[in-house]
């Protein structure tokens, strides 16, 4: 007999696959954005006759954007939207009548969407490493996976906090867009964080956003040395714990304020 959460995860994957064409279009849009990044940085390197910028060679910067783009597809979660829509439309009622934890259901529904993009993401990363001739170690691959998982958990918790806040703001749309842009820029999607001016990178490297793209990608392509792996794992876990505590208390308050549609 199935576990209720596994059963929910299975049916969510089935439900999400109904929107697969929509997903495909969205993914193509993302790929085009990253192809543009690669072209721009190639022009900068080749036009400026530069062999290296901030310890990144041209080959590494190409790998950075291909791998970073692939990771962004996984960590691009939607639980802020799920939660905000549930609160706004009163649909939260149909989840709260089930004998399961609502918060877990939100995370699983969001995960079901991300699972669908896993195969193309793996293929892209393997292709980037092989085609661009990036040598990496087993330790780097394992640490990369751990950091991606921590980054995924962090963005989910941040999105959950934003979704919860929609009880006070009616809609989380504005904050979701803000988070997406902050995660895109400060996560290292436009450029590696070490390219920022030092006063800015000193601040950005203290924030959890670097765990989304910059840290995992730099680990895989050999920019971050293996001696720093443990630091980044602990750094990510610290932020995950802090944000989870905040999310836990916020949700405790929000669930008492929920007023579903109708009356």
């Amino acid at each position: 007999m199935d576990n209720p959460y596994i059963a929910f995860f299975k049916i969510s994957i089935k439900d999400s696959s109904a929107y697969f064409k929509d997903y495909l279009t969205y993914t193509i849009g993302r790929i085009l954005t990253y192809m543009l990044m690669i072209f721009v940085w190639n022009i900068v390197y080749i036009g400026g006759h530069l062999s290296e910028i901030g310890s990144f060679s041209l080959m590494q910067i190409d790998a950075y954007f291909v791998i970073g783009g692939a990771i962004f597809l996984i960590i691009d979660s939607k639980n802020d939207k799920i939660l905000s829509d549930d609160i706004k439309t009163g649909n939260i009622a149909k989840s709260l009548i089930k004998p399961v934890n609502y918060v877990y259901m939100v995370f699983l529904e969001s995960l079901a969407d991300n699972v669908l993009v896993l195969p193309p993401v793996f293929i892209t990363i393997i292709f980037a490493l092989y085609y661009l001739g990036i040598s990496t170690s087993i330790l780097s691959i394992i640490t990369f996976i751990i950091i991606v998982l921590i980054g995924y958990a962090i963005i989910n918790v941040i999105q959950f906090i934003i979704g919860s806040l929609s009880i006070y703001t009616t809609s989380a749309f504005g904050m979701s867009i803000l988070l997406a842009n902050v995660a895109f820029i400060l996560g290292g999607a436009i450029m590696p964080l070490t390219f920022f001016p030092s006063y800015m990178s000193n601040i950005v490297l203290l924030l959890p956003f670097q765990m989304f793209i910059y840290v995992p990608t730099s680990i895989l392509i050999g920019i971050i040395p293996s001696s720093a792996y443990l630091y980044y794992i602990l750094f990510g876990l610290f932020w995950l714990l802090m944000l989870s505590v905040l999310g836990y208390f916020l949700w405790g308050h929000v669930k008492k304020k929920i007023s579903s549609a109708g009356g």
């Binding site: 049916i11 439900d15 109904a18 929107y19 089930k98 004998p99």
Partner: peptide
Amino acid sequence: YWNLPAIDTFNFMRSM
């Protein structure tokens, strides 16, 4: 579930 047959929801209820 809007996009799925009702039997999928019934099976989900069985597991839940």
